[in-house]
Design a protein around this nucleic acid. Structure first.
Length: 309
DNA sequence: CAGTTAACCTGTCAGC
DNA sequence: TGCTGACAGGTTAACT
C-alpha cells in the first residue's frame, strides 16, 4: 500500500504528537505483527514500557522512533513498516476501537495527556520491531526527520533492518549519480529497477507507473538502455511526483491508506496511469492498459509508452 | 553473481 | 444470498 508519500504523511503526523512522549503500556493483539522482532511480544513490551520517544524518522518506506530506554547502553529504536495495508493512527483512549488493530502502544505526553498509537494492518505484511541503531555508511543523517534532532546521538544512525535501504529521492543527501550508475549496470526492465529499494527507495507500484507514464517509458525497457539524459529526466519526474503527492497527503483509493487521523489523501485525482485501466490517456486519448506483471499489475499507455529497441 | 519467482496474509468486490 | 476468483499500496527467501 503505502509508498514514500503516504509514509511521509504518517511520519509528519506522528512526530509532533509522539516526540518526548513516554510509553506507559503495550498491547500486542496479534503477534504476527511482530515478526521482525525476534525477542517476542514480552520483550517488545518490556523494552518499550517506560521508554521515551525522541523523534520520528523516515527513509524510503521505513519509519523509526529513536528511544531513550532506561538502563540500556545500546541505541534502540521502534521500527515500523506499513507493508501493503498498514496504518498508524493516533487516538484518545476513549475513542472507539479500530478494526484490524494489531498493536496498541499507550503513551503519555509531557503535559500528562494520555494517547494511543494504534497499528492497524489488514494483511499483516507490515511490522513493528525494536532494533538497534547503527551509524550510517556515509556518516550523514539516517533519514528524514524535518531537521529535528540536529546534534542528537541518533541523528546519523539507522536501524540495522533498514540499513540496506538506499536514500530516497526526497532525501537531501540523495545521490543521483549513484542511481544513474546503477541504471547503467542493470539489464532488468526499468520498472523493476525503480522498485528496487537498494537502487533508490520509496517508490512502489503507483508512483513507478506514474513516473514511467510521464517519461513515456515502457515498464520493460531495459534500464541500461536509457540514455543519460532520459534517465535524468525520469528521476526528475520521480522527484516531482513524490513531492506533489506528499503535499497532497498521499494517495487513497479505499480504506487501505489513512493518515494518523484516519483521513484519506488527495493525490488519487492526479493519477494518469495507475488504476486508470480503460480510461483515455490524458496525452493521446487512447485507453490505458493494465498488464499482469510480477504478480501485480502495470498500468501504461500502449501508444505513448512503447518498448524501444 | 544477477535476475526472477513464490510466499507471506486478509479483505473487498465483481460475476455467476 | 452465497460462492469463487481476481485483485490490492511491499519485502524477502529461495529459486534459476
Amino acid at each position: 500500500m503505502p509508498e514514500l508519500p503516504e509514509v511521509e504523511t504518517v511520519r509528519a503526523g506522528l512526530a509532533p504528537a509522539l516526540t518526548n512522549a513516554t510509553i506507559t503500556a503495550v498491547d500486542v493483539l496479534d503477534v504476527r505483527s511482530l515478526k521482525r522482532h525476534p525477542g517476542g511480544p514480552k520483550d517488545f513490551a518490556q523494552t518499550l514500557i517506560g521508554s521515551k520517544v525522541l523523534g520520528v524518522v523516515r527513509r524510503g518506506k521505513f519509519l523509526w522512533l529513536p528511544l531513550e530506554v532506561k538502563g540500556e547502553k545500546r541505541s534502540l529504536a521502534l521500527v515500523g513498516h506499513l507493508g501493503m495495508s498498514g496504518q498508524m493512527l493516533l487516538r484518545r483512549p476513549t475513542d472507539p476501537e479500530d478494526k484490524l488493530t494489531r498493536v496498541v502502544i499507550h503513551l503519555i505526553t509531557t503535559k500528562g495527556k494520555p494517547m494511543e498509537f494504534r497499528f492497524i494492518d489488514q494483511r499483516i505484511f507490515g511490522s513493528l520491531a525494536i532494533d538497534e541503531l547503527q551509524p550510517t555508511a556515509d556518516g550523514k543523517p539516517g533519514g528524514y526527520s524535518a531537521g529535528v534532532g540536529k546534534g542528537k546521538s541518533w541523528q546519523n544512525q539507522i536501524p540495522m533492518q533498514a540499513a540496506h535501504i538506499t536514500r530516497d529521492p526526497l532525501d537531501v543527501d540523495f545521490d543521483e549519480d549513484f542511481v544513474l550508475a546503477k541504471f547503467q549496470k542493470k539489464n532488468s526492465g526499468i520498472k523493476r529497477v525503480l522498485l528496487d529499494q537498494q537502487t533508490l527507495s520509496g517508490i512502489g507500484n503507483i508512483y513507478a507507473d506514474e513516473a514511467l507514464w510521464r517519461a513515456k517509458l515502457h515498464y520493460d525497457q531495459p534500464a541500461a538502455s536509457l540514455k543519460p539524459a532520459k534517465a535524468k529526466e525520469l528521476l526528475a519526474h520521480v522527484r516531482d511526483i513524490l513531492a506533489k503527492a506528499v503535499s497532497e497527503g498521499g494517495t487513497s483509493f479505499d480504506e487501505q491508506y489513512k493518515n494518523v487521523n484516519g483521513e484519506s489523501g488527495y493525490f488519487a485525482v492526479s493519477l494518469n496511469a495507475y488504476g486508470m485501466t480503460g480510461l483515455p490517456c490524458a496525452r493521446c486519448g487512447r485507453p490505458i492498459k493494465r498488464e499482469n506483471w510480477m504478480n501485480r499489475g502495470s498500468h501504461f499507455c500502449p501508444n505513448c509508452q512503447k518498448l524501444k529497441a
